[in-house]
């Protein structure tokens, strides 16, 4: 195996394993912590693809903001009962069986497909020459300006909605 393959296999194996840990832990706080480790590994995968800006944003937004809020909510809810109950419904072996069978069909089929992506102007060398932040910024604010603005308006609507819900009394 070459070095990139070793790196990728490490990240892929860890991401799969950590995802399993997230859904199987009894203590919700432990689940969130495994998820933190999972996010760090996803950021590592981004770094591996030369997307350093995405990697930093992955940590700042997902690990630093969203997951902290998850943790905040989980700590405030009293989840003692959850910890003693069974983690899964009775039919989980059936689900696992169907998943494995589907996998057995999909792996040979997908293995035979080779996709050659069309090469755009943003090759690895082009991104390296001016930096990832610069490239992402330019594309985001010229080519994809409208979708970007729409996304920010949607977020603004969500914020306004949250404020309205949180405010008991509106004058």
């Amino acid at each position: 195996m070459t070095a990139p393959q070793v790196f990728f296999s490490y990240f892929a194996a860890m991401i799969t394993g950590l995802s399993l840990l997230v859904v199987t832990r009894k203590n919700p706080v432990h689940s969130v912590l495994w998820m933190l480790l999972l996010f760090v590994h996803i950021a590592g995968l981004y770094l591996f693809l030369n997307a350093e800006f995405l990697a930093a944003i992955q940590i700042i937004i997902y690990a630093g903001a969203i997951l902290v809020l998850f943790l905040f909510v989980i700590m405030l809810l009293n989840l003692r009962k959850e910890e003693t109950e069974k983690r899964f419904q009775r039919q989980w072996p059936l689900g696992l069986g169907i998943g494995v069978v589907l996998m057995m069909f999909l792996v040979p089929v997908l293995g035979n497909i080779s996709v050659v992506p069309p090469l755009g102007p943003y090759s690895v060398d082009a991104i390296k020459s001016e930096g990832h932040i610069m490239t992402v910024g330019k594309v985001l604010y010229t080519e994809f300006l409208l979708p970007f603005e729409i996304a920010s308006v949607i977020l603004l609507v969500a914020i306004v909605g949250a404020v309205v819900l949180a405010k008991r009394r509106l004058e």
């Binding site: 800006f53 930093a56 700042i60 902290v68």
Partner: peptide, 12 residues
Amino acid sequence: NIGILYILALSS
């Protein structure tokens, strides 16, 4: 290249 973002990420 992402020096500032790196420090912000670690502080979070």
